[in-house]
Design a binder for these strands. Structure first.
Lengths: 232, 232
DNA sequence: CGGGATCCGTAAAGATACTG
DNA sequence: CAGTATCTTTACGGATCCCG
């Protein structure tokens, strides 16, 4: 099952043999973010095929990176990182900071689509900073093609946010009108929210309390702070 | 030229896209160790084919990880790491420590041959700790197949050590008789030199001054200290 | 001899369909 | 929901050849 080993004495090469197979690190990241089910991982890591995800999870179990837990009652299967995998956390964060500093922004923002962005933002909403009720936020992206350019994000106190791609019928508390490029730039710390609103690249309308506190209820990427561009 | 991107927002995935292609990190490691020429890199990274090394070096230039310098006079070509690549150093060292701690020793010592070991040790000889003259050390590995089980390592003050696979004809200052498994275990900090000599798994004969100071003139892997096994 | 390019067989990854 | 099965495409490995 494992690839041909490098045959070198440096332990780094042994780490490479375990971590380099495509999607391995992305799967670990998704588990780190709290996903535990097969199809949950799939949604968080769009682009991987079911066959390859299945194969990787088996390999990662064999390497001691992932634990598979089956509930004998329901038959449900959950995947978790092992302690060995958790010990990579600091290294992966350092790697993210390195990438944020050394890989150009334009490259880093290519090839991302609105649905992946929304799935990422979904976990970044702090419901404690929103009114203690159900809140419906409608995102519309001008640079995404119509069938997939509008998303409804629904929050309830104490529950994870939900994403809808069709109108759930609720009244909208906040309308967000922007581009995928702008929104992901803000998330990654490459653009400032206040500046983008000021310059007219991001429009907010609806409940003014929610609009005014967007910098509080929207958590940015942990890599946002590293960014090298002038944030003045 | 680049592989299909992951399409995720996490900067770690961007780092993966640059560093995951096979041999990329091993090439950086060899450049870090001081190799600069195409065929020098090949010897330090046995297993990579010439075609793939050539292709990788081009990709790594495009990514800004490697700089290619051609001497206009001689036409000689040297490769160097860029600053961007050097900023990975601490992360790669941390990854090596992680591997040393979390990947089992038996696995880590598989699939290594005597010639790769000797090529590694060649750079680990501190000639200041040896007599100020030419010294000839003969390594013989009991667990390697005969045509490739004997190596002559020749040191001269102030010069890099040389490896010979056939008898250079000089008098031998020190004979080292052991197994590849034992010698690489010592190098990686998984076995103690004194213990291996004591227990008869490594024999030294010849110049007693050189034999007695082996722990000084043989530098171990930078990962040797992390090792989790009892070193008592 | 150093620094590659070319060709071909195999192994890994991607796309899609289907199943208990 | 949690995967298999199958087919196509791309990447890698190994050998050979080339050129200044």
């Amino acid at each position: 099952m494992p690839r041909k080993p490098y045959g070198l004495f440096c332990p780094v090469s042994k780490a490479c043999e375990e971590l380099e197979p495509r999607w391995t690190i992305q799967i670990l990241g998704e588990l780190w973010d709290g996903s535990t089910r097969f199809n949950e991982i799939r949604r968080g890591v769009p682009g991987i095929s079911t066959g390859l995800l299945s194969k990787r999870l088996k390999e990662m179990q064999a390497k001691g990176l992932v634990e598979r837990v089956e509930d004998p009652a329901t038959g449900a299967i959950d995947y978790f990182r092992t302690k060995k995998a958790e010990e990579l956390d600091d290294i992966l964060v350092a790697l993210g900071h390195w990438a944020q500093k050394n890989i150009k922004a334009e490259i880093a923002l290519e090839d991302r689509d609105a649905s992946t962005l929304m799935w990422t933002l979904r976990k970044k909403i702090l419901d404690e900073e929103l009114p203690k009720k159900r809140n419906v936020l409608r995102f519309n992206f001008g640079d995404a093609l119509p069938p997939c350019s509008t998303y409804w994000l629904i929050t309830k106190p104490g529950e994870p946010a939900e994403i809808c791609v069709s109108d759930p019928g609720f009244d909208i508390d906040l309308f967000i009108e922007t581009d995928v490029t702008v929104m992901s730039g803000i998330y990654l710390g490459r653009r400032r929210l206040a500046r983008e609103i000021e310059d007219g690249r991001l429009f907010l309308s609806g409940d003014a309390r929610i609009a005014k506190t967007m910098d509080r209820w929207l958590k940015l990427s942990v890599y946002a702070e590293t960014d090298g561009i002038a944030l003045a």
